[in-house]
Design a protein around this nucleic acid. Structure first.
Lengths: 199, 199
DNA sequence: ATGAATACCAAACAACCGTTTGTCAAGTCT
DNA sequence: AGACTTGACAAACGGTTGTTTGGTATTCAT
């Protein structure tokens, strides 16, 4: 049985790559920088990953898993469909705006940036966005719009926060709450307004 | 009087640059490609523009002007604030999704992609987004959210269409209409629901 | 102890990047 | 006609890029 050796710095490498990819994007990040940050020469990176694109892909997959975890955690215990949507968006935004470089990569590098890996990057991203497809489908009231369009508007609005968000003022979960409040107005035409219990 | 000569291919150069920047982004576009597309050697590009960043900036400015023009044209004759917002979004989306490579550049290259020109790129972009600040401010009813946040959500949702839009199915103006309909729900809490005329 | 796998280093490779330099025909001004 | 400007070409420059190759100390299985 030949198995791991455990002087392995693959994890540090991946961390370093995640930070650089998230902050500078794919093309502005060089193998040399990543290697440097992991205390490694550029050539050594290729012992761990066969190419720069594969390195990105590994980061991307890990990113999907982490945002997914954040969403799952936020979702725990919530039962009302709108509450669930808000919680999921809260987890999503927290991960992407504050928590993890891995998560941020999902927004700062587009699949089209790396044609040779575009299909697999899109797969990874879809794997995450599918959660929201479900959450939107579970909303009871008539939305007044195509649910697919509703989801795209919602994710577009949320992810755009990456551009204007700066930590310290509004918390990601507050942004999620406000967004859901705006979107929720659209169902108020039929079953209009009980102010929803509270206290 | 020393004046122009008019064998000048600056315009073709700018067009070529706009298309490449829009389709491939800043870093993946090379001066050689742009020169090629304009029938020019790479060195000759520098007769017209002092640097790649300056070339982008010229494209960007022209882009702002063209989307601005599309918005102005769409706005003509509209008086109701919500109608105006919808029209403006329609013009914005049409320009960005179908009409002009110059317009598309506003979405496909971020100011942060080119640090040496980031400030001036942001200026250009703000010049355009300020129109929407006004349009949102003119909405009468209480929005139920911070107008700034409302604007950011709206532009985020709209611009995200660049990712999922494909020509032939839904028209940009229809997307704008749907988006406004979703957002408009949020004003229905106080002055709830006259179904707004219609046969 | 021996042999193989591990996890790197050191150095280079070819390709490509944005940009500069020197040159020059064609057009315009005087 | 001569001087000067325009709009390019041709060729290279220095630097950076992702990647490859060959070597080597350390660790592990036998």
């Amino acid at each position: 049985m030949t198995r791991t050796y455990e002087n392995n710095r693959s994890a540090e490498l991946l961390d370093a790559a995640a930070v650089r990819f998230a902050d500078a994007g794919y093309h502005k990040t060089t193998i040399r920088e990543i290697g440097d940050a992991a205390g490694m020469l550029p050539g050594s990176v290729y012992y761990h990953f066969p190419s720069k694109a594969d390195l990105l892909l590994a980061v991307y997959d890990e990113g999907v898993e982490r945002v997914g975890g954040a969403v799952d955690a936020a979702l725990e215990g919530k039962v009302d469909p709108w509450d669930r949507l808000e919680a999921a968006l809260g987890g999503h935004l927290t991960a992407i705006l504050e928590a993890s470089a891995y998560a941020r990569v999902l927004l700062s590098v587009l699949p089209s940036d790396v044609p040779e890996a575009a299909a697999r990057l899109r797969d990874a991203r879809d794997r995450h966005e599918d959660r929201f497809r479900e959450l939107v489908a579970d909303l009871d009231g008539d939305l007044g719009v195509d649910p697919a369009l509703f989801r795209l508007f919602m994710l577009g609005a949320a992810n755009h926060a990456k551009v204007w968000f700066h930590p310290g003022s509004r918390r990601p979960v507050d942004i999620a709450a406000e967004l859901v409040r705006v979107l929720r107005g659209s169902e108020a035409s039929d079953r209009s307004s009980e102010p929803a219990g509270a206290s």
